[in-house]
Nucleic acid binder design. Structure first.
Length: 752
DNA sequence: CTATGGACTTAGGAGAGGGTGG
DNA sequence: CCACCCTCTCCTAAGTCCATAG
């Protein structure tokens, strides 16, 4: 959904754009929240009051913003906030089509009805991992709370000892193997998942690294690359020039035409100018960056045209940098760092309709950097002549480096790669929590069905919201600071304008139409029939509200999560996404895979199962720019293959006829050869066709996100093992590194 | 409580890199 | 061998959720 979909027209906007008097509007949502509290005890069913009665309350709070000093400046702006749909009709259509194709396969909500109490039949091996897994979970449960007492520790140790035996044997085997190969693979893969974990809340005992790699310094443009203002050449100071180049590099992008972008950019650019420049450059429209832009284009061409040697040199240099800065030592192991390079300066581009787009993202210097490492490690050196902001030794966190970013005032971190122990353990634990949800999800569902009838409004709202989160895999929906970010919502922050109710629609009763922008301003559009009770509740929640009022005015994520916590230890809203995604994959795989299919067909089935999840989670992507063309190419290939096939068939026929007449060895052999050829071509054709189907169905669906973040990798690994499919067909190298734990421990009867 | 800060996960897009077919 | 195309990797924004300050 690139350029063409951005914008699209403000659907919801202006209806109330002007009607409110500044502050009022801003406070509306918050006011609702207050209402909630006040009414808590009232259990009014329908006594929703007009929020306006308390508009003034929040005024003072409103004033304290800060972060980058931009306090109130957006206060007015955000009022114009509108929903500029980003993902558009095209998308909508396709999305629905896909639903039509795939949704029948999914029967969402209570899919889990009668799960066996889980893992009865497990091989000893599984038993073992399960045990450890539970421990892990306990860990996580304890951690946030203050409990981790001595007792717990001991208990855990004890438990762990129980499975030490199988572990040991395994380890030994590994070790010997390792020795054998020691020369070839000096770095035997470390199986952190076979080791104990910290139970005291610390994340490591030893941490040593070399600090971040800074962005290369600015190199002024050669003097023949000129900037013009109002048609006249003007030499810029290096500071101003650098910022100008940021803009020049984006010239082809649509957003340099956007008002907000231009306004933010120009404002920040002026801050970097010297007095003279400031006085002279007063209108961005009169600035001509084209020479700069051409220059950068030429540079990138030149880079592409480099000789092999030059490219190799660069590659080697990168490798050197990676080896030096891309790893750290954490607790006796050399682990890969995810992002060891500091983000270079540039112009901020938020996603969707972001109020801060175009602002200058400033250069990060050593004095902005906080280093985290262990006391007894060799501390990273700041570049000559500079100092770190701070060096600390906090082993309760996982980051190595942090700094504060200037656009939102938030903190950025350098952390480890997903293949690292510290990330892997957490990931594993996440899936274990989801598996625990599996065991009690029926109970929870029963309860929220009950709660739809509650006397208390807040409970009804909570129950309906939870139903959406469970059934539709919506995100929690934290509230956001208005005017600081794009206007997007999740479940708890849905507004009245985001849903439409149809007592009857297309032959279905009680249909709810969702249409809102979610994370990353990706549009969520869906029409779902719901239970009558949900429908009636929604009508109730919407009574007497404006379109931009909160749908769930007595609910927020923290209330919801508090409730979830009571239902199950460690349960939060996002666990439902993980759970529903993983369970859907497992079901779909069961349903779609058939034993007699060949490998490509099995993989298509896998991808379809994956796709069902991606659709559930609304993971969209812009259709690749070359999509149509590449589809055509593929079709051409298919046609060619078809021709080839009929040729081959014809040849086979004649060979057969020939053999019948001649009845000699030679012609018999010829028949065999032709037969083989036909078969081979048939297979190739089939493969191409499958590929075409897969690609077509995948046009605007992104599989990666769910694969990486929501699907318990053990499900996929088990599936591969069950059907004799190499994991490499499912996971690429990075993914295999990230999921090494699962690849190692899941066997074919793993059940999520 | 509520607001804010902090840490960590989840997200889509850009562009590099590498394989493939002509 | 080159152009093209696809996949993967990197990049960093945008969420979630918890802790803590006021």
């Amino acid at each position: 959904m690139s350029g063409d979909q951005i914008d699209g027209g403000s659907r919801f906007n202006d209806s109330h754009k002007h009607k409110d008097k500044y502050k009022e509007k801003e406070h509306k949502h918050k006011d609702h929240k207050k209402d909630k509290e006040r009414e808590k005890s009232k259990h009014g069913n329908s006594n929703h009051k007009d929020p306006s009665d308390k508009k003034h309350r929040d005024n003072e709070k409103e004033k304290m913003k800060h972060k980058d000093g931009s306090t109130d400046k957006y206060k007015d702006k955000h009022k114009e906030k509108k929903v500029n749909y980003h993902a558009h009709n095209s998308l909508k259509k396709a999305h629905m089509v896909v639903h039509a194709i795939l949704l029948p396969l999914l029967n969402f909500p209570p899919q889990v009805k009668s799960e066996p109490e889980d893992n009865f039949y497990h091989s000893p091996k599984n038993e073992k991992s399960l045990k450890r897994e539970r421990d892990d979970d306990n860990d996580s449960e304890f951690k946030p709370k203050k409990i981790k007492t001595e007792n717990d520790k001991k208990a855990k140790k004890r438990k762990q000892e129980e499975d030490i035996k199988p572990k040991k044997t395994k380890n030994k085997r590994e070790v010997t193997d390792g020795k054998k190969k020691a020369k070839k693979e000096p770095e035997e893969k470390w199986k952190w998942w076979e080791e104990e974990r910290y139970t005291d809340g610390s994340k490591w005992k030893f941490l040593e690294h070399k600090g971040p790699v800074f962005a290369p310094p600015y190199e002024p443009l050669p003097s023949n690359v000129k900037f013009y203002y109002d048609g006249k050449h003007m030499k810029l100071s290096p500071e101003a020039e650098e910022v100008a180049t940021f803009f020049a590099k984006m010239l082809d992008h649509e957003y340099t035409t956007k008002d907000i972008f231009r306004k933010n950019f120009f404002k920040d650019w002026r801050k970097e100018m010297n007095a003279e420049e400031k006085a002279k450059l007063t209108d961005l429209k009169k600035c001509n960056f084209t020479e700069m832009s051409e220059y950068f284009k030429a540079q990138s061409e030149a880079r592409k045209a480099m000789t092999k040697d030059e490219k190799l040199k660069i590659k080697e240099e990168n490798e050197r940098l990676l080896q030096e800065y891309g790893f750290c030592i954490m607790d006796n192991h050399r682990e890969r760092i995810a992002n060891f390079r500091i983000e270079p300066p540039g112009l901020f581009r938020g996603r969707g309709d972001h109020p801060k787009m175009g602002m200058l993202k400033r250069r990060i210097r050593p004095k902005d950097i906080i280093i985290n490492c262990s006391k007894d490690s060799k501390h990273p050196e700041p570049p000559p002549g500079t100092k770190w902001k701070e060096v600390r030794h906090d082993n309760k966190v996982t980051w190595l480096v942090s700094w504060t970013e200037n656009i939102q005032g938030s903190i950025k971190y350098i952390m480890l790669n997903p293949s690292s122990r510290i990330k892997g353990e957490k990931d594993w634990q996440k899936y274990e929590t989801a598996r625990r949800l599996k065991k009690c999800v029926d109970r929870i569902r029963t309860q929220y069905h009950e709660d739809w009838k509650s006397k208390e409004m807040r409970i009804r709202q909570r129950a309906v919201a939870l139903y959406f989160i469970d059934k539709l895999a919506l995100r929690a929906g934290n509230e956001k600071e208005e005017g600081e970010t794009a206007d997007t919502v999740g479940c708890c922050s849905l507004r009245v304008e985001h849903i439409k109710l149809y007592p009857e629609n297309d032959g279905q009763e009680y249909v709810v139409e969702f249409d809102f922008l979610g994370k990353d301003s990706i549009r969520y559009y869906n029409k779902v029939p719901v239970e009558k009770r949900v429908f009636k509740n929604l009508q109730l929640f919407m009574e007497n509200k404006e379109p931009d009022d909160d749908l769930f005015d007595r609910l927020n994520t923290s209330v919801l999560n508090k409730h979830l916590q009571e239902l199950m230890d460690g349960l939060t809203a996002k666990v439902f996404r993980t759970y529903n995604a993983s369970i859907t994959l497992q079901q779909q795989l069961k349903q779609l895979t058939s034993a007699d299919e060949n490998l490509p067909a099995k993989i298509l089935s896998y991808n379809r199962a994956n796709r069902a999840v991606a659709i559930l989670c609304n993971h969209q992507r812009a259709p690749p720019k070359t999509f149509e063309k590449s589809m055509q190419n593929l079709q051409t290939k298919i046609d060619a293959k078809r021709d080839q096939l009929s040729d081959a068939k014809r040849e086979l026929k004649s060979a057969k006829a020939d053999a019948k007449v001649r009845r000699d060895e030679k012609s018999k052999k010829a028949v065999e050869t032709k037969k083989k050829a036909v078969q081979r071509i048939e297979e190739q054709l089939m493969k191409l066709e499958v590929q075409a189907t897969d690609r077509e169905e995948n046009k605007q669906i992104a599989l990666g996100t769910s694969k990486l973040n929501y699907l318990d990798p053990r499900i996929s690994v088990a599936w591969c093992k069950k059907w004799g499919i190499p994991v490499e067909k499912i996971y690429n190298k990075t993914q295999r590194e990230k999921f090494a734990w699962a690849i190692d421990m899941a066997d074919e009867d793993f059940e999520f």
